[in-house]
């Protein structure tokens, strides 16, 4: 009897299920799966917008490792990623831990932190162009401590650090919010027990807060690393990859090869390398932080 009833219910469910998911399924096939397979194929061709793709095997991949432009971009992406991720997370933790404590002042400050977090990156970048300009805020603040004005965005030594500082600032607001929410969700009894045991602030932080916060930290780390590895906007808006390719991060180099220069096969191959690197780095992070569970 119940089998019959289930059968009777199963068919309309199947119809509705297919109907409700069909648009999304078609969309993901057309705009994600097919392009992904096409990108793999293109990476083995010499496709250049005009003309037809010819299969050239691994030539694009071989070319990459002899291309100073690619090697430079890959190295800059590594530097950029490490130097944005580490300070951002450390600084965000240093702010989030005290900020997550209850209190009226903290509640107000938490609301204020949302302002930088919600600033669009495009708008942020334009503001930092002015901050880094010759007569801008960066040089004014340096002048207060007696340091000569710098050409932040046009010096090949400084430009990458100018980008890093902006991105650290931009991501910090976001991560403070995420970490604060994570910290507020931690069980209060553990802290009461620690206080009764006379645990100091530093011990409480390293022995209790950090381990309990591991899941949130892993999330922040993963989105932070992935965000930095595929960051295109800061390099495009602040420096245009320059001066002398000093800020030409890999996503910028891929874009420049694919669109202004129309080397689509080669750009697709570099995109695949970036993708594989991102997957490996994510897997390492999960492995590393999951490993600490036992």
């Amino acid at each position: 009897m119940s089998v019959v009833l289930d059968r009777g219910r199963a068919r309309p469910q199947a119809t509705a299920g297919v109907a409700l998911t069909l648009p999304v399924a078609v969309f993901f096939v057309v705009f994600w799966l097919v392009p992904f397979l096409a990108a793999i194929y293109l990476s083995f061709t010499d496709y250049e917008m005009a003309g037809t793709p010819n299969w050239i095997g691994l030539a694009n991949y071989e070319r990459m490792f002899a291309d100073p432009g690619f090697l430079n971009s890959a190295w800059i992406t590594v530097v950029y990623t490490v130097c944005t991720v580490v300070p951002t997370i450390v600084l965000a933790l240093l702010v989030a831990v005290p900020l997550s404590k209850p209190g009226r002042l903290n509640r107000r400050l938490r609301a204020l932190v949302m302002i930088p977090a919600v600033m669009p990156l495009a708008a942020t970048s334009m503001v930092w162009v002015i901050i880094y300009s010759d007569r801008g805020m960066a040089n004014t603040l340096l002048g207060l401590v007696g340091i000569d004005p710098q050409s932040w965005l046009t010096s090949s030594d400084l430009a990458i650090w100018a980008l890093v500082v902006m991105v650290v600032w931009k991501s910090m607001g976001l991560f403070v919010i995420i970490l604060t929410a994570g910290l507020q969700a931690l069980p209060g009894e553990v802290y009461e027990a620690a206080a009764i045991d006379g645990s100091g602030a530093v011990t409480t932080f390293t022995r209790i807060t950090l381990p309990l916060l591991r899941r949130t930290l892993l999330f922040v780390l993963v989105i932070s690393v992935a965000g930095s590895m595929q960051a295109f906007v800061p390099a495009f808006l602040l420096t245009g990859g320059g001066p002398a390719d000093a800020t030409q991060v890999l996503p910028y180099y891929i874009w420049a090869n694919a669109f202004p220069y129309e080397h689509m096969g080669y750009a697709a191959a570099m995109g695949m390398v970036l993708l594989v690197a991102m997957v490996i780095v994510s897997a390492l992070q999960f492995g590393f932080l999951k490993g600490g569970d036992e």
Binding site: A10, F28, W32, P35, F232, L250, M272
Partner: peptide
Amino acid sequence: SFPGRRVLFALVIGTLALTPMVLVIP
């Protein structure tokens, strides 16, 4: 419950890992 539910879920989760830098060209 409908046919293809698992496949669709795998497709959706799989795309979470893809970077736009790979997809923009195709």
